[in-house]
Amino acid sequence: MKQSTKEDLKKKPHGKDTALDIKGSVFTLTVLCLKSADSAAIEQALHEHLSRAPRFFHNAPVVIDVKALRHDVSGDTATTLDFALLTALLRKHNLVPVGVRHAAPEQLNEVITAGLAILQGGSAKPEPAEPPVASATGASATPPPNRMPKHDERSQDAPEPTPRVATTTKIVRQPVRSGQQIYAKDGDLILLAPVNAGAEVLADGNIHIYAPLRGRALAGVTGDMNARIFTHSLEAELVSVAGHYRIFEQQPAADVHGKSVQIYLENERLVITPLI
């Protein structure tokens, strides 16, 4: 019932007769922080960065940030930047320049002439610790080898100057024994050995147990209603997601006992479903 009303709301304002819809959306873009106005120097630096991760930036939309140039000691360096030339340079390297950020008022005309947009987004944020281009290429070395980086999710925008690596996941390889308690703060908990009766595992995020769960498992202990618990074999004493708990005084219902299950909240009710 609720879902259908949502659908209706979505459809009604935009009938079939309109040729287009205008919607706002947020994109993550690569920002090129220029530290020099010299096109030869820019080209060399660009070549260096791109050769390290050529596929990473292929056809990547980029925003040119000229803030560093404005702060340059000689006030006139910024004005010497030729946006038309720069745009051509970037295109030559298979980048797609889309706009300029932190342009000086006297540059605006030139930016527009070069076919670029003037962007103000993210300007409230303090200056990134290091140029995003450098950190983005640095990041291309960090992701696990089995995961091909896609430029849109790895590339940096001003609001997030450092690459986000999920370091908060806690992995436990030893059995969690009666009387022991393991808590994964700010993240997920992954257990590769059983959680025995009388043991307790807690996480701010999800809990994955690739072994039997015989003790207690509490996911989303700081209130994350989307947290889930996964286990290879449900033999638990208690399970809880964001404070909604269930005690198995006897044994879990026959249809889920000893089965691979996931446990999550649906409309504030704890649901246990078998994983096939």
Binding site: P175, V176, R177, S178, G179, Q180, A197, A199
Partner: peptide
């Protein structure tokens, strides 16, 4: 068995 499990945890800690 439960108590042994407990003592195993203590051994490890």
């Amino acid at each position: 068995v439960r108590d042994s499990d407990r003592i195993l945890g203590i051994l490890a800690a």
